[in-house]
Design a protein around this nucleic acid. Structure first.
Lengths: 200, 200
DNA sequence: AGCGTAACGAAACCACAGGGCCGTTTAGCC
DNA sequence: GGCTAAACGGCCCTGTGGTTTCGTTACGCT
């Protein structure tokens, strides 16, 4: 077998096709959920040959995984407020806004759902969050350096603790987290960190 | 339209068919994820008429919703340890064991995924957690009464805060939470509650 | 500018999920 | 035990996802 299609000549037409397909895939995920995603339909909507979609992505989860890789590239800058609690608040607010955004929120739900069905998608998702979490970990480390948080605090654990309740709420109750929820998430993670729950 | 099939004569054969189908549906969800669940295949495996499955459940999400209703009926008793932290630990351990169980864990992931695609399933899931959370809320209320936690603490919020990191970890990283993770979850929720994050 | 081939896309094909029809079984009731 | 109809299940048909084939387009390279 040769290399994956789209890797040898990724410019021009190929890129346009990829962009169109990913865009339509996102639209369908947002408005219908990922179990309604069928490649033939995506091809029609994207005005692209059905054959192409099947050849390049092969399956629904393959398409979602690629979409996820695309999302991972657009990274949002971390804010710095000068205090650990402030930074965690900023992070919580960012996550909350993302999940509350009609398009992004639905996309995340769909991607997480897809990851439960396919190992490749799950790996892509894991990497995505690894990057995101690593990006925000320094704010906790700075907090430790400033003496706001106990030495030995697991920075990434704290960052994940901020996101957890927001995602949990969205996924299990379907209720979109609001700003107060973000505030609670940040304060809870901060309080737990201060209490030394994430040490060692 | 008349009533749903299976409601007028739920005994005998109907019950056997339902049990067989739900069992097979669970098996498929556990080993393949919910997007691989097709009703014709379930019917074959359950040695049940294909027509029956389509008539009674109609769609994948309908079947999952019914499965969820079935799961909701088997409730686990709440433990009482005498302290809020102890009770939260017991709750965290219970959730952790459930998610770590190869069958139950996969089932939860599949059901949550299905809920992102279908409103009926989402409602069933919401109801499920409402019951579960309400069941454990008293342990927080007792903690408040004993003076361990601040007055006005939102009991259900605390209970949800215990589950959140465990579910979050399972869903976004695919890593099955272990006992230490449960311990951290319980201590974090407790610390946040003590700090008054869930007051008002 | 010209060439070789990667990648696309139209069309034909096929397996099968989804669903209707209707005869058979049997649960619920007297 | 017998009756009624609720529910099941075999059979058939259809629409359409998913695949293969092969001709066309245009990317990348010299």
């Amino acid at each position: 077998m040769s290399a994956e299609p789209g890797t040898v000549r990724p410019g021009g037409r190929t890129a346009r096709v990829r962009a169109a397909v990913l865009r339509v895939a996102g639209d369908v995920l947002v408005e219908q959920g990922f179990d309604c995603l069928d490649l033939a339909d995506v091809a029609r909507r994207a005005e692209v040959g059905k054959t192409t979609v099947y050849r390049r992505w092969g399956s629904v989860t393959g398409l979602v995984a690629d979409l996820l890789a695309d999302m991972a590239e657009q990274s949002l800058p971390r804010e710095e407020t000068g205090s650990a609690l402030g930074d965690l608040r900023a992070n919580a607010a960012l996550v909350q806004r993302t999940l509350a955004d009609s398009r992004q929120g639905a996309l995340f739900r769909a991607v997480i759902a897809a990851a439960t069905c396919d190992e490749r998608t799950a790996q892509a998702l894991r990497r995505f969050y690894e990057v995101r979490v690593a990006e925000w970990a320094p704010c906790v480390e700075q907090g430790v350096a400033r003496g706001e948080l106990p030495t030995g605090t697991d920075a990434e654990a704290v960052v994940r603790a901020v996101s957890a309740p927001l995602y949990y709420q969205l996924l299990t109750t379907g209720v979109i987290p609001d700003a107060p929820a973000a505030e609670r998430a940040a304060r809870a993670a901060h309080a737990a960190a201060v209490a030394g729950v994430y040490v060692g």
